[in-house]
Amino acid sequence: MTLAPFCPTTDADPFGPEILEDPLPFQRSVRDAGPVVYLSRYDVYGLGRYAEVHAALTDWQHLQSAAGVGLANFRTEKPWRPPSLLLEADPPHHDAPRHVLEPILTPRALRALRPAWLAAAEQLVDEVLRHPGEIDLVPAVAQAFPLRVFPDAVGLPEAGRENLLPYGDHAFNAFGPSNELVAKGLPRIGEIAAWVNAQCARDVLAPDGFGAQIWAAADRGDITHEQAPLIVRSLLTAGVDTTVHGLAAALHAFATHPDQWDRLRADPGLARIAFDEAVRWESPVQTFFRTATVDMRIGDTIIPEGHKILMFLGAANRDPRRWADPDRFDLGRDPSAHVGFGMGIHQCVGQHVARLEAEAVLTALAARVERIEPAGPPVRHHNNTLRAFAALPVRLHP
């Protein structure tokens, strides 16, 4: 391989424990180094600036997803599970599954769920407030609410839902290198994946959920009956962990920015903006890969055909070239251009579901909680792709 002149190089490991614990200094160094940085440890090219990341996300013709959105190159390596028909496919194979899901998950289609989800959030917050003293917001709220409402919306039975979090955790770890984070999930992943796959069958799903609507699309001929369970599986893979960590990011932001919590309490209509600002600020999905389909120039660097690029979404979302005072969590900014949900044809199809879940939780909390007081340092959960919390100890003051 020939590197273009002046391409900065680093041997730092973006999937190492120190960087996963606090990626901000590394992300700053990547942005400052230039438009492209060569990551010698993995023989990939990294993008940390907003302009280049945004351009890469939208250029599916030259930077494909079909070779895998993780480090593994599907041109030369067999994936551990069948590739996602949404994340790991490009047109024309990507089109039909996307077109089936989009009308199911639009804000208008989700409007019918809003009253029930708002009521469920109020009930959850009431349950939490019955136990005064220190509480961990990760299991009590950030995990509890998505696991309560999202599987219902898909049409899953109650039993076994606890499998969704370790399955998603392993799936997102597998986008990175085969390190100890991947190894810790291997002993149970066969059993858990079998459970997830079983939930995607038509006769398991409730007749009025997202899953049943996907199967109905197969009956209409919009997709094949072989594709239907894979699309349901994509929802279950990407629809829980990302929302859990997005909610945790918002709760952490408000615990550490009490002035912004006061702002939300004064105007609960800011709940959705608050969630998007939290996604920008923390970037629960930190990284995604693409593969060059041709030799292509980014800045002064030629990315060779067949090579991977690593897009640092978290770095782009704090790029001072795009955002004023990017390290501040601020409900006064317009965060709508963040890349936390991706961009272009692969932009997260379930983002409106996540926003509705967050709106329900934040609105219920804002109506009942005057102050979120940190009760100890937050504890990070390391994942090769996700910026996550293991614990958020707080005291809630009604």
Rank of each mutant, 00 (worst) to 15 (best):
H338C: 04
L313S: 14
D327P: 03
P82H: 12
E134R: 15
I104H: 11
P5S: 08
L164V: 08
A193I: 00
V125W: 06
R368T: 13
L137P: 09
G239S: 03
R49G: 10
P79V: 07
W323I: 11
V128E: 08
V128N: 05
E18I: 02
P377Y: 01
R263Y: 03
T256V: 13
H307F: 00
A121C: 06
V240L: 14
A194I: 01
I309M: 00
G239K: 11
R75F: 10
R395K: 06
A364C: 03
V53E: 04
A253G: 14
Q227E: 15
P393Q: 07
P146T: 02
G376I: 05
L251V: 13
P8N: 10
G239Q: 08
N197Y: 05
L105Y: 02
G332N: 00
P207E: 09
A274D: 09
P304M: 06
R114I: 10
N384A: 09
F312G: 05
S336N: 13
D259K: 12
C348W: 08
W80Y: 09
T106G: 09
V69S: 10
L164P: 01
F175K: 04
F275W: 06
G160E: 00
Y50N: 06
E277A: 04
V369M: 11
T301I: 06
A388F: 03
L186G: 03
T224W: 07
G342Y: 04
A144I: 09
F172Y: 12
W60Y: 15
H338N: 12
H346S: 11
Q123F: 00
H352I: 01
P8F: 08
Y50R: 05
H93V: 11
R148M: 13
R380S: 07
L331A: 05
A109N: 05
T291K: 06
R220S: 14
S234M: 14
H225E: 15
L137R: 08
M296W: 10
L101I: 08
Q143G: 00
A116W: 09
A266L: 01
N384D: 11
V141P: 08
I223D: 07
L264M: 11
G314F: 01
P398K: 01
D219H: 07
V353K: 03
W60R: 10
A315T: 00
D219C: 02
V30P: 04
R98M: 07
A367Y: 05
E357R: 10
E357A: 13
V240Y: 12
L230Q: 15
F175A: 14
R148F: 01
G332W: 02
A250F: 02
L63Q: 07
D95C: 05
S40W: 00
C200G: 06
